[in-house]
Design a protein around this nucleic acid. Structure first.
Length: 938
RNA sequence: GCGGAGUUAGCUUAGCGGUAGAGCAGGUCCUUUACACGGACAAGGUCGGGGGUUCGAUCCCCUCACUCCGCACCA
């Protein structure tokens, strides 16, 4: 057997083993297999992205599930792939183009630009999948998919056509979330509400007097109102005050609204002067107005606000659009606010406030915090904008709700169910068109000679113009049936395709089954998938939509619900944050590079460290220390095995129950039994997606039971020349190691595989060995090993308290209790282990206390003494006794209080009372003895 | 504002009604037959505040405070 290195060196192992696994085809899924199927589709990372810690956690968990399933004898498909990530990728390439060639995508044109993105994809698209290999992911790379693979693209378009035929996809004109940064509409789910500090501007809108109303607009600014009624009466009002956060949109105001029947109701029907781009606009009454807020008067700007648009529709108001697609003021012509024209919306805000102030129309400006929707992509405030887009009316909502309610699909942790439910109950149609070049083209064709009257780049004003001509405009039917065709192939000459692309999520919602569409029956075998592992941030964007797709498209052709679930279990990982609790982000520079961490600590260390500390259902505060612990653990495991290897060859089929064993071996086997079968055991924890619990239990078993205790005890056995239990000790080692390596393999695949193979456990790989779920207890087990370990703990504490250097050997006396000395005497080997654990020069076992006893401690084996002379400083000893006495007295008092409480005696369960009584007795004895020892010191 | 999760040692956390448990960091000691990526020991907690239920509450209920995450937003 080759000697193992002194420390585990991941760099020597990882790439070699991954290559071996690939060559061995262990990750390949066989649809023809008779084994039960287990499948997971990987949430596809952005094709040009790089590995983040989030990916590591996410994929490690998937790998754990898959590796465990393989060991359980299932046929496993873990299907990897990447996402074209429309806008994100387009933006990245655009930036690159700007930096390298100082060109915009418009300058090089759509076709050339899309080609650039493909080039980019071919160059960088493999990075992240290579990085996933680095962390050991056991995916079936032969089935890797990309959301823009030709087959996949076709499937996406077919789905569009199908849904269009069903009337679920339609072209509609709505207020959408317009991203002025990336010049496209985005869906509600991509808007991040963000608290913003801004100002609330109080602006005067002067009432047009009945007489003045007759005067044509364009007057000089009236100073005050010549026809104003006397002050002090209700009719004395000469202006209305309006609070707004967006004075730059005043030019687009078309009315003021007040609450019907409210304090300003008497003014309804009158007119005010719009303070910028001065014109008369009416005062209307609308329920949307709340008197409690601001001044109780609302300026109505239908082109630039969702609520205002609704109000505008109700009152048949015109729409005046004064913003360009990139959110600059667009109000050309000669008028009193023409200097705003061309300004960016935020500059215009300041400037218009100044203009108002100059004209005495700004009453005041207050600091104000409100929530503004930001574009997730460009990180700029979105602009509500009237535009014509494609929408999907979600099908199968009720069924999708029932899936979770009836338990066909389970979320882990469960509380995400509510979030899912709430979204489905308040669902809005999905805006699926994007003004983006990189993505799936919308399969809709228009007759060239009947160019659509409007499209997504039309301004709201144009759209409203069209409305006058088209009665069915609201339904989005802008073309006669023979002017528009929804189909994949071009209808030929004279037709032009819709310029827009589909939302990336419109392709990924098919991911769970479309990726499995192959000739060999993969989908039949592996769909529905077993589990999905993802972050809660895409519960709507992806998870819910995949469930809906499964329900609607019934990919396996069968009607039963069970065959159409995209997945049965969804595990939501926590979000990884930094030590201060901030999200990891590029801009903060607080995201550690997983590859650097792998270089420092090994892939297994990273995996194990991350999984062990990831709390269930909560965010993770990342600290590199935890990864270090992961590495240290792997090294610990390595060295247990190394130690064993030094004792001779291992027996892969070792059965410790065939040999006579030490009590220490039985103790370890007992612990293993409980690890696998006890209450809340590690296996169960793992089955319930409680990864950190399972990892922690394994960590504790390996480190504290195996290494700290068993290995130390076994050294005594190995040191003896004619030990009758030596063979049993070796067999126990081999047996437990075999279990531990298999149990840890899903968490730490590399180190376990390397050890399995290097130690000669027989099979060529650990990953197809059976998953251990059972291990018997020894019939001979006795509590003696525990007693010795605990006695050692007590003795070490005693040593520590008299402040001896750790390495100084000292004698102990053990006055064994009647039970120990008569019924189960302390055997020589047991005494030897205790001696070693205590680093004692010797242990004298006595029947009665030594003549001149020193410091004393109570143990399960009897009273443990140190020699009185030489070693002990009386002052130190006295402090120790006083301190311990105080603790005992406190415990005793607490116990006696319980036992003295009549209520408690009457109502507490008898078993508990017994426990407390026993405790009282033993504490009482301790107290007495401590007092005696103290008295002797006086 | 509505809904969800959380608040336990300096940090990260376990604790599922019966004397609060671990790892790390910090402290002291130690290179004794694997491991200094190690070993030994000690110290560190009125379990966010306040009520209630119970013989007994870190745990169940109510309430307040703060943090995080959804959703809806008042211009």
């Amino acid at each position: 057997m080759p000697e193992l290195a002194k420390a585990y060196e991941p760099q020597q192992v990882e790439d070699r083993l991954y290559q071996k696994w690939q060559d061995g085809g262990y990750f390949k899924a066989d649809p023809k297999s008779t084994k039960p199927a287990y499948s997971i589709v990987m949430p596809p990372p952005n094709v040009t992205g790089k590995l983040t810690l989030g990916h590591v956690l996410n994929n490690t968990i998937q790998d754990i599930l898959c590796r465990k399933a393989r060991m359980e004898g299932k046929e496993v498909l873990w299907l990897p792939g990447t996402d074209h990530a429309g806008l994100a990728t387009q933006t990245a390439v655009e930036k690159h183009l700007r930096q390298t060639e100082k060109k915009t995508r418009h300058e090089i044109g759509r076709e050339a630009f899309v080609k650039r993105i493909w080039d980019w994809k071919h160059e960088f698209g493999g990075i992240i999948t290579q990085q996933l290999r680095k962390i050991g992911c056991s995916c079936d790379w032969s089935r890797e998919r990309f959301t823009m693979d030709p087959d996949y693209e076709r499937a996406v378009q077919e789905v569009f056509v199908k849904l269009h035929r069903e009337g679920l996809i339609y072209r509609g004109t709505r207020m959408v979330n317009w991203c002025p940064g990336s010049l496209t509409a985005i869906s509600d789910e991509e808007v991040i509400p963000t608290k913003q500090k801004g100002s609330l501007y109080y602006v005067k809108y002067e009432l047009v007097s009945v007489v003045a109303a007759a005067v044509p607009s364009g007057d000089e600014f009236p100073s005050g109102n010549p026809q104003a009624p006397p002050l002090g009466t209700a009719a004395a009002t000469t202006y209305l005050e309006v609070a707004t956060t967006r004075p730059e949109t005043i030019m687009a105001d078309v009315a003021l609204a007040v609450k019907p029947g409210g304090k300003w109701a008497h003014l309804v029907g009158r007119k005010v002067w719009r303070p910028l781009h001065r014109e008369q606009i009416p005062i209307i009454a609308d329920e949307a107005v709340e008197e409690g807020f601001g001044t109780g008067v609302l300026k109505v700007t239908p082109a630039h606000d969702k609520t205002d648009y609704e109000i505008g529709k109700r009152h048949k108001l015109p729409v005046i659009d004064i913003l360009t697609p990139n959110a600059k003021i667009n109000d050309p012509g000669e008028h009193d606010a023409s200097e705003l024209h061309g300004l960016d919306r935020f500059e215009a805000r300041k400037k218009s406030a100044e203009l108002l102030k100059d004209r005495g129309l700004l009453v005041k400006e207050e600091p104000y915090e409100n929530t503004v929707g930001f574009s997730e992509r460009a990180n700029v405030p979105i602009e509500p904008r009237l535009s014509s887009q494609w929408f999907l009316k979600y099908p199968n909502i009720k069924e999708a709700l029932a899936l979770l309610q009836k338990g066909h699909v389970k979320f882990h942790p469960q509380h995400w169910t509510k979030v899912y439910q709430h979204w489905l109950e308040n669902i809005q149609d999905w805006c699926i068109s994007r003004q983006v070049w990189w993505g799936h083209r919308i399969p809709v064709w228009y007759r060239v000679d009947h160019t659509p009257l409007i499209d997504s780049s039309s301004s709201p004003t144009e759209i409203v113009e069209v409305e006058k001509f088209r009665k069915d405009f609201a339904k989005g039917n802008l073309w006669a049936p023979d002017e528009i065709l929804c189909q994949i192939e071009s209808p030929g000459e004279g037709w032009v395709q819709d310029p827009d692309s589909l939302d990336t999520w419109f392709s990924s919602w098919l991911w769970a089954y479309e990726t499995m569409q192959t000739e060999d029956g993969t989908r039949q075998k592996f769909y529905p998938t077993s589990a999905l592992v993802t972050g809660p941030d895409i519960i709507f964007l992806w998870v819910a939509r995949m469930l809906i797709a499964g329900l609607h498209f019934k990919p396996n052709g069968a009607e039963t619900l069970e065959t159409n679930l995209a997945f049965k279990d969804v595990y939501f990982t926590g979000l990884i944050r930094d030590k201060q609790g901030r999200k990891l982000s590029k801009s903060l520079g607080n995201s550690p590079d997983p590859l650097e961490l792998i270089a420092k600590y090994g892939a297994d260390g990273l995996r194990f460290g991350l999984v062990r500390i990831a709390p269930q259902g909560a965010d993770i505060r990342f600290d590199e220390k935890q990864i270090e612990e992961g590495r240290n653990f792997c090294n610990k495991l390595w060295n247990i095995c190394r130690f064993r290897a030094m004792q001779g060859p291992i027996d892969p089929k070792a059965d410790p129950f065939q040999h006579s064993r030490s009590i220490f071996a039985d103790e370890l086997l007992d612990r293993l039994h409980f690890l696998l079968e006890g209450e809340r055991n590690a296996i169960e924890a793992l089955n319930q997606y409680n990864f950190s619990e399972a990892a922690s239990q394994l960590y504790d078993f390996v480190w504290n039971e195996f290494a700290a205790r068993y290995v130390e005890a076994a050294k005594i056995d190995f040191a003896q020349t004619d030990s009758p239990t030596r063979a049993g000790t070796l067999a126990t080692f081999d047996y437990v190691m075999s279990h531990v390596l298999r149990l840890l393999h899903p968490f730490a695949p590399f180190v376990t595989e390397e050890l399995w193979c290097e130690l000669g456990f027989g099979a060529e790989t650990v990953q197809l060995q059976n998953w251990p779920v059972k291990s018997p207890r020894s019939k001979d087990w006795s509590p003696r090993a525990q007693e010795i370990y605990m006695t050692a703990d007590v003795g070490r504490t005693l040593r520590g308290e008299i402040k001896l250097p750790s390495n100084q050997k000292i004698p102990f006396f053990l006055v064994t209790s009647a039970l120990v000395s008569k019924k189960r005497p302390l055997a020589d080997d047991q005494k030897a282990v205790l001696t070693a654990f205590l680093n004692a020069s010797e242990i004298q076992v006595l029947d009665s206390p030594p003549a001149n006893p020193g410091p004393k401690a109570f143990t399960q084996l009897g009273d443990l003494y140190l020699p009185a002379t030489g070693l002990v400083d009386p002052g130190v000893e006295k402090d120790r006794l006083v301190k311990e006495l105080a603790k005992v007295e406190k415990d005793l008092e607490q116990t006696r209080r319980k036992l003295g409480d009549a209520n408690m005696l009457a109502k507490a369960p008898p078993a508990k009372l017994e426990e407390w009584r026993a405790l009282e007795i033993s504490l009482g004895e301790k107290e007495k003895s401590l007092r005696e020892s103290l008295a002797k010191l006086e």
